[in-house]
Design a protein around this nucleic acid. Structure first.
Length: 588
RNA sequence: GGGGGCGUAGAACAGUCUGGAGUGUUCGCUGGCCUGUCAAGCCAGAGGUCGCGGGUUCAAAUCCCGUCGUCCCCGCCA
């Protein structure tokens, strides 16, 4: 079918006979001579023919699939195109073969313009012909290969675990699959192979990894789909350091493959969870820029400003950021204050630092000169800088300033890659009076005593990998002692009977000489998306779903027949039936 | 579950605030001309349920109500 790809055509090949195949990217008909840009998966080359010899050249249209045979020749002087890698030469056609014709494409197949995403998804096979999308597919493939090579070199075994597993009510909503042999019973698609990879450790597997598809039936985001790919790994006789070193090797290798322009320096920076929360107001800080959060409670310890004093008395905090010399106006201040109120904060105090004068601020009259000077000093304020202060409950203040920081400071077109470990997460958190784990219930506590006596202060041996403010993955040292595992479930409020019925089989497995083990899972789609500079993981997933879980090309999901349902013992409540959208958004 | 943006020709948009004939821009498409273009050029032409439904009005792309789709965010995501 073809002897070369378009990107192989070069000046050195002048005089060579080649056969190429691909699509008509563009046709430029000059009457006596016709130029066709022939596109394949590697690029574009110009082919030339005369309508006198090839009358069908006039009937070629965009996206026709063609095969051409011809000779590579140097372009006439002055007709070279230095913008193309093979622009010094062109293919003089000896034989033209239209393999298949094409309808007029619904949107142009080129990087320069972009159609609406829904239309692109409906015609994804055309969208993927665009060079940018082809590059992303290729990048994803290279990343997969790099991960596998790196881990295979480290003697990891890729082991496939079941994708039809038992549903567990904890965590995200499961995607369910009905069982025909056991009507009324359901499989769940895995949210992660967590339990199976731990069982593999108990099975004597030394190093495990898997490129696995995981499923979580939760609402979509730019970085969240119903199904997604993880680099899942686990090692026996491992602790935190071995995991971190291995994950650094893997993501470092992928980064240097896809982004050779950026150097990833290992070992990666580490922050503890509490440092991250204090300085950045989030457990996934974007450290490509400063604007760190600074505690100011001591500055206002004896303040006469009632609003601040009240917050401190009730156990709250006062913290601030220096937003720098941003454009400031009354309107902007009002808009920001309204915004932080929508986020749940009581308010926002702003100050604009001045040369040789106390900061300008609506609350300046309530504060002493000493307090104003101390705040300015603490936040490193220079003339023109805008300082933003929040006085509130600790969690609210951290969250508010963390979001403000991102909104006001996050770099827009940065090429930088800032990987970061966040370590020492809390074991549990309290929400609505219930104790739930932050990571998952198989995470080892740093101290069993502390976990039992003061669970909400307990530190877990767990860690997250963060890239440019995006959570790339998380892992932990696992519990390998059945008694500790049982205790964790008790702290979560499970009765012994329930522990036995739901997790007894797993705890029993821990009772047969389980090795200490630890592991990690990297969100592969997110990693590739960030490295490719894509704004959403949909850009690096070949056939992604929309926000309502629809795959618009095949129109998935779809209803199934009564007979199919009958075999499964399932009846659908007609009041709940909603037909998924069956076309593009213009349907009424 | 909640907040916000968007929906106008095959594509990307302007027009919507302040109602007055489907008014327009760029690209694509069709036909013609053209032997060195490469986002070719020139000439001519076709192409519209202004997402859908209802209301207000002499008159609705425009105002109001509802609804569908889509995107972003909050909740949610062990």
């Amino acid at each position: 079918m073809r002897t070369h790809t378009t990107s192989q055509i070069s000046e050195q090949m002048v005089g060579a006979k080649v056969t190429l195949a691909g699509w008509v990217d563009r046709r430029r008909d000059h009457g006596g001579v016709v130029f066709v840009d022939l596109r394949d998966h590697t690029g574009i080359v110009q082919v030339v023919m005369e309508p006198e010899s090839f009358p069908e050249s006039a009937r070629l249209r965009r996206e026709f699939c063609v095969q051409v045979r011809g000779m590579i020749r140097r372009r006439p002087e002055g007709a070279e195109n230095p913008a193309m890698s093979n622009g010094m030469v062109e293919v003089e056609v000896d034989d033209l073969n239209v393999l298949s014709r094409s309808e007029e494409p619904p949107f142009p197949i080129e990087d320069r313009t972009s159609a609406e995403e829904l239309l692109r998804l409906e015609y994804r096979y055309l969208d993927l012909r665009r060079p940018r999308m082809a590059r992303r597919l290729k990048a994803r493939s290279k990343a997969l290969r790099t991960v596998r090579r790196t881990l295979e070199d480290l003697e990891f075994w890729e082991v496939e675990t079941p994708t039809l597993i038992r549903s567990t009510p904890e965590g995200a909503r499961d995607l369910l699959v009905p069982s025909r042999h056991n009507p009324g019973s359901f499989y769940a698609l895995p949210q992660s192979p967590q339990i199976y990879k731990q069982l593999l450790m108990m099975s004597g597997v030394h190093r495990y990894y898997q490129m696995c598809r995981c499923y979580r039936d939760e609402d979509f985001r730019a970085d969240r789909q119903l199904e997604f790919t993880q680099i899942d790994l686990e090692g026996a006789f491992w602790g935190q350091e071995e995991v971190l070193a291995t994950v650094e090797k893997v993501v470092g290798a992928v980064a240097s493959t896809l982004r050779p322009d950026q150097e990833v320096i290992t070992p990666l920076r580490r922050l503890t969870y509490s440092e991250a929360m204090d300085r950045y107001g989030t457990d996934k800080p974007d450290v490509r820029f400063g604007m760190e959060i600074v505690g100011l409670a001591d500055v206002f310890a004896g303040t006469g400003f009632r609003a601040f004093a009240g917050v401190l008395e009730s156990g709250g905090v006062i913290r601030g950021i220096n937003a720098g010399p941003i454009k400031w106006s009354r309107a902007r201040a009002d808009a920001l204050i309204a915004q932080v109120r929508r986020w749940g904060a009581g308010g926002l105090v702003w100050m604009v630092v001045r040369q040789d004068a106390p900061p300008r601020s609506p609350v300046a009259k309530f504060l002493s000169d000493g307090e104003l000077a101390a705040v300015t000093d603490r936040l490193g304020g220079k003339a023109g800088d805008v300082l933003l202060l929040v006085a509130d409950a600790e969690k609210v203040a951290a969250q508010t300033l963390g979001r403000l920081r991102l909104e006001l400071g996050a770099p827009q077109d940065s090429q930088e890659l800032e990987f970061l470990w966040v370590v020492d997460f809390p074991m549990f958190e309290e929400s609505d009076g219930e104790i739930t784990f932050l990571h998952h219930p198989f995470t080892s506590p740093a101290s069993v005593d502390q976990m039992v006596n003061r669970p909400l202060q307990a530190v877990a041996r767990s860690y997250d990998l963060v890239l440019n403010g995006v959570e790339l993955g998380s892992g932990s040292v696992r519990i390998h002692d059945p008694d500790i595992q049982r205790q964790v479930f008790r702290i979560m409020g499970l009765a012994d009977q329930e522990i036995e019925s739901r997790f007894g089989w797993f705890i029993r497995a821990l009772g047969y000489g389980a090795p200490p083990h630890a592991g990690f899972a990297v969100g592969f789609d997110r990693l590739v998306a960030i490295l490719c500079g894509a704004a959403s993981i949909r850009e690096i997933i070949p056939f992604p779903k929309t926000q309502t879980g629809v795959e618009p090309l095949s129109r998935t999901p779809a209803s199934v027949g009564r007979r199919q349902l009958g075999e499964l013992g399932i009846a659908v409540d007609p009041r709940r039936v909603k037909t998924p959208p069956s076309g593009i958004g213009k349907s009424g």
